[in-house]
């Protein structure tokens, strides 16, 4: 959507002489205050509380302020936890690779092969609309397609390719990955499209004039310049998959696990300190991944 290059706007505001004026920075503090208060109350404070509660003791009825470490030793000492983490990472890597591949080519097609900007906007909107509809609905919409009597299976059986319906299409890891790709590819398309639209077309022309084939232009000009968009898309997709519990639960039919799903189960058993310890571990893992990606890209420059 964004085709213009960013301009530096934070020039110091001129002070006006007439009337009463607050100093400009005071106004900025006042304007930033609501955001800070809301994020402080509903993000910062809850996160601090989770860190505190992860050291508390608990039984079936309540939790007790204390300083114990068994919430961590129990969860990290269990083989099931490690398997769950590995399983979640496996989903993250697979979904990331697929969404990166699909997202890049879709964005590349929109940015470089659609000629008019109105057509670009229409096609981009077509890609964006599902993002603004319910994830749950988009998940269950796979049931009539992949189910035992679903569209794919009926087609396969009728074509004589298989003798009995394929069972692993729904309620399997395959279904989880497919649904995640379906839900999250847009998060990859949008930032890559945004970056590609900002590439100076003269660079492509120059490369062509210098004798580069379109494949060479793609590899040596476009791909390196698209990296920031890919990095932002990666942040979205990886954090969304690492946090996912509903897709794993619904699409695997309870046969697969993820860290967030494990936490959700602990929460429904009122084992809040155990869930909090898991939350701290998961949060550290996710933030480390994001910090790693942020070393490649400065988000503020890419907006």
């Amino acid at each position: 959507m964004a085709t213009m290059t960013s301009t530096e706007t934070d020039k110091p505001q001129r002070a006006r002489s007439e009337g009463f004026r607050f100093p400009p920075t005071f106004a900025a503090y006042l304007q930033a205050l609501p955001l800070f208060l809301i994020l402080g109350a509903f993000l910062l404070l809850p996160l601090l509380l989770i860190a505190v509660v992860s050291f508390w003791d608990y039984d079936f009825a309540a939790m007790y302020p204390d300083f114990v470490t068994f919430n961590y030793t129990e969860t990290l000492g269990s083989w099931v936890t490690w398997q769950t983490y590995l399983n979640t990472l496996k989903f993250a890597v697979i979904v990331w690779l697929i969404t990166l591949f699909v997202g890049f080519w879709v964005a590349y097609f929109l940015a470089f092969h659609v000629r008019t900007s109105s057509m670009q906007m229409v096609l981009f909107l077509i890609c964006t609309v599902p993002f603004l509809t319910s994830n749950i609905i988009r998940m269950i919409s796979w049931i009539p397609v992949l189910g035992r009597n679903g569209l794919v299976n009926s087609a396969l059986v009728e074509a004589g390719l298989v003798s009995a319906p394929v069972e692993w299409l729904l309620y399997s890891d395959f279904a989880v990955v497919l649904a995640m790709v379906h839900l999250y590819t847009l998060f990859m398309v949008t930032p890559i499209f945004n970056t590609l639209m900002r590439i100076d077309r003269a660079l492509v022309e120059a490369a062509r004039d210098a004798g580069a084939s379109s494949f060479q232009v793609l590899i040596n000009v476009i791909l390196p310049l698209a990296k920031p968009g890919m990095a932002i898309g990666t942040i979205f997709v990886v954090t969304l998959v690492m946090a996912d519990f509903s897709t794993v639960q619904v699409m695997s039919g309870g046969q697969s696990a993820s860290v967030a799903l494990m936490m959700k189960n602990q929460m429904s058993l009122l084992q809040y300190p155990a869930a909090a310890a898991n939350a701290v571990v998961l949060l550290v893992l996710v933030l480390m991944m994001v910090a790693g990606i942020l070393r490649i890209v400065d988000i503020r420059k890419e907006l």
Binding site: A28, L35, L39, T239, A260, Y272, A279
Partner: peptide, 30 residues
């Protein structure tokens, strides 16, 4: 606010980004 430079602008910006990347279940739990 972010058009001006003010003390704490960068931490506030990264707090907003953090709000996006912190797993939803953790926000929920907190």
């Amino acid at each position: 606010a972010f058009r001006r430079r003010f003390l704490g602008a960068t931490p506030l910006f990264y707090l907003s980004v953090a709000s996006l990347v912190v797993p939803s279940i953790i926000v929920s739990l907190g």
